[in-house]
Amino acid sequence: MDVTITGLTKAFKGNTALNAVDLEFGGGMIGLLGPNGAGKTTLMRLLTGILRPSSGRITVGGHDLGNRAGRASVKRMLGYLPQHLDLYPDLSAREFLDYIGLLKGVDDKRARRAQVDALLGQVSLADSAKQRLGGFSGGMKRRVGIAQALMGDPRLVVVDEPTASLDPEERMRFRSLLASLGGQRTVVLSTHMLDDVAQTCSRAAVLAAGRVVYDGSTPGLTAFAEGRTYRIDTGGPQPAGDFSIANAAATGDGMRYRVITDTPPPKAVPVSATLEDGYVALMRDARAAREEAADGGR
């Protein structure tokens, strides 16, 4: 399923959530990263046809989301997990998935049943299938949400922070579930867990303040921090200087900081960069570029 996004802009009253975004991707998984308020959810809503863009164009599998017929066709092959999903509390997990299956046009009762049971197994809720959703824990609800997104065998799967509130084991299980899907379908995944992206997506896009600041291979993100990552050990106060802290850990007799900077402080030791360092470096650069643009504008 080929997705093409060109010049996509979405403005709400007073602020521009997305600003001239261009993206293009085919089958497989793409990870969407970015700080809070970067516009990930907005992009996903536009991609699913829930919101209409202020300007720009999106086509999914050749269907233009700008017209009603295109949106209708895309919705028939779509699975979406919103960031916040307020489930009907008085339904059991099985009934809920059955309902979603019906709404997605899975008319055959037997096929629907089989899908529901398979998905409940995949998100390891088979034992709680008959319990009311109102009594589910936060992570269990999230898993029901993941299962409903996969109902009806969608070819485009858009999941907004699916792993938030999952326990470590379930997160692993979810990653392998996604990885097993990735082959035939297009999966767009937004998350704040860099590990999710590192382990499942070969491709990553990073948004910052409504713009795409990175679009390429996931390992390629590490390159931004290469040669700019340092370790600082200190027993005293947090070191000050022109750098971004990528990590901080207690070492027993003090603190160990990982910092990204072009001007390392005196006692900093260079270390090899990770994906996390790459992300922090990218954000640092994006912020600097924005500040420069703002200064230039003045």
Binding site: T48, P82, D86, K104
Partner: peptide, 19 residues
């Protein structure tokens, strides 16, 4: 008042007014 998860309903093939 009991209508929920409208964002999800918006992404489903059945339009919200029909629902």
């Amino acid at each position: 008042g009991r209508a929920r998860m409208l964002e999800l309903h918006l992404s489903l093939p059945v339009p919200v007014p029909v629902l």
